[in-house]
Design a protein around this nucleic acid. Structure first.
Lengths: 215, 215
DNA sequence: TAGATTGTTAATCGATTAACAATC
DNA sequence: TAGATTGTTAATCGATTAACAATC
């Protein structure tokens, strides 16, 4: 049973939603029709109350003694994350990381299809990476417009990140998945989501340093 | 001027510290000896008050009318993030992403040196990736012990992530940088830092979907 | 019925922002 | 001195956790 989603779903919940999917798919394959928040929480290392809040916020109602309906959860998560209709994206910067992202097959299931890469290196332009064309950076604006691409995955060197991002936005890009360490000064209506490896490594290092002090 | 750091630095501050460094290095190269929180905030798209809190929490004292001493900030950040002494790490899983991380030269400046990769694929084992040896997964335990490696960068397929992580931990790994979507059930004293691409993409997609509704 | 499980309201916690005093 | 800038205390905000009522 699904009810109307009251208000917008919190940032933290959105971030957790993808986590639920593999477990739910497995449960469905195993023939389970419902699953308890306690079971989910244990598998995903979350608090059961948090799980119930998340699932409730996407409009799925659980049943006492039974738990939550697995198929409905899957449908609700797919709907809320837009995994049902796929958006096309360009990777800008065909270096190690850009190539790795272009080669990752899992994004299609998450509603994202990479249709090409851009680079300035003449040795790369014209070749393919994981069957996707590497295109000349000079053609970025034209192709963004012509193909109506709205998402850019930014993996260029940090010194050129901001300029490239601004070019992409002027051509029509509306959302940037920023893998560079550079903060992007862009119009407010442009969506920027940053993957901050340096921040993540900093947390790891500092916790490791702290744990060494305790030994 | 540096004073004692009162209490432990907050998680959010730790995540932001790496962001300050490129700007500070540039300022130093340009011959500036001090920099104001307003200038930093504008460049990094932060709030000036937040910048002052961050810098104050690592023990650097600013001066009214002048700002913060650039060189002291650089030293304090390097010290707090452990960028002065480099730790060695293994990449486990020599796929696209593992190879990309092994090829990234920036980690050394952030206190992390990747000394080798592990994989089960006989076509990969024995070769090198970015001058780093690809080793047989069977040798993981032995080499972790012999080389006293404490950090593992996990980029294996998700179905094997937990088992591989547990093997690594039993051999002596104390911190895992987890690039897989899998939650790892490990002893409490093991440090796990997750890079959650699916979560980041979910935020991007949902914000894009929300912005479309407003057009 | 008893008990397992959901769902809601209140309390807590951490981080950010606001307000303003202190200082050079 | 005046004003730019730091630094601290209080208020706000969002997320998580605790407590407990509701339900099957």
């Amino acid at each position: 049973m699904v009810r109307d989603v009251q208000e917008s779903i919190s940032y933290s919940t959105i971030r957790r939603l993808p986590l639920y999917m593999p477990l739910l798919k497995n449960s469905l394959d195993a023939g389970q029709q419902s699953i308890s928040s306690a079971k989910i929480a244990e598998t995903l290392l979350l608090d059961p109350v948090l799980v119930r809040k998340d699932l409730s916020s996407i409009g799925v109602i659980g049943q006492a003694r039974l738990g939550f309906p697995v198929q409905e959860l899957i449908s609700a998560i797919e709907k809320h994350l837009g995994w049902d209709n796929v958006s096309e994206a360009f990777v800008i910067g065909a270096g190690n990381l850009g190539a790795a992202l272009a080669g990752y097959t899992g994004f299609e299931k998450h509603g994202l299809r990479i249709v090409g890469l851009f680079d300035t290196d003449p040795d790369k332009v014209g070749k393919t990476i994981s069957d996707k064309p590497v295109l000349d950076m000079e053609k970025l604006e034209g192709l963004v417009k012509r193909m109506h691409i709205h998402i850019a995955i930014l993996t260029v060197p940090s010194f050129s990140a901001e300029l490239v991002a601004q070019r992409a936005v002027e051509a029509g890009i509306r959302a940037i998945w920023n893998f560079t360490p550079t903060p992007l000064h862009l119009p407010e209506n442009i969506i920027v989501e940053k993957v901050d490896l340096a921040a993540s490594l900093a947390v790891l290092s500092s916790r490791l340093a702290a744990s060494r002090l305790m030994v």
